[in-house]
Nucleic acid binder design. Structure first.
Lengths: 111, 111
DNA sequence: TGAGTTACATACCAAAAGGTTAGTGAATTC
DNA sequence: GAATTCACTAACCTTTTGGTATGTAACTCA
């Protein structure tokens, strides 16, 4: 019971928590990350892998994830354009944690 | 590269993922859970601990978390009313995972 | 010339999430 | 009899999120 008890969950700072939620909340964000954990994909490929997402939203989410530092984007100067998305090293760091996320839902689904 | 490769993140089922996001998304949900990880609190105490949240939203979130099986509510027949909230055993099970999740933001904050 | 390809942008709209404000019931204290 | 306490409810409004539909640039190929 000391002052810098890192076990105390309520000590997690608000900015850290907010950034965390930025990354995992948002309807397709985790899905995108999970797909890209296997290999890099082009924009069009991702669209076809997650058919329920709309064009606009997918681009929006990709943009956000790039700006958060989760994804990196590579554009080739070709016509028609070619753009590939992949996970950043930081994103790879947190993959094991993201994987654990699924255990939360599992615990609460079998009531 | 076999069929039941549990390492493959993209294999996480949509219902499980959805339930997970139900629990951790929502602006104050994790905050509430973290506060209650220390001890049970009354509604009014929680309000004072998270002053930025509005009355309505706090009650809303508490209700949702109860219905998800994360919190349990005990009302005492007193006047003025006394209502206490606490984590369910299932919520205690997933506390370590929640804690890890909350640290994701840290990785992406120090750029 | 004109259709196809690809990765976007833009205008617009609907639904969901979050927030403000005011009110309620019932005993207790002034 | 009036004010206080506490845990809510209800009406209403604003902001954010998600979605549709359409347009565009620039080159290739028929």
């Amino acid at each position: 019971m000391n002052a810098n008890n890192t076990e105390n969950l309520s000590e997690i700072s608000q900015p850290v928590l907010k950034r965390t939620l930025d990354i995992i909340c948002g309807k397709w964000r985790l899905y995108i990350i999970f797909q890209l954990s296997k290999q890099d994909y082009r924009y069009g490929e991702l669209r076809r892998m997650i058919p329920e997402v709309s064009e606009k939203v997918l681009i929006q989410e990709l943009k956000t994830l790039v700006s958060l530092g989760v994804l990196q984007k590579r554009s080739y100067n070709e016509v028609p354009p070619r753009v590939e998305y992949g996970l950043t090293p930081k994103a790879r760091e947190i993959l094991p944690v993201l994987k654990e996320i699924a255990t939360i839902g599992k615990t609460f689904l079998d009531v």
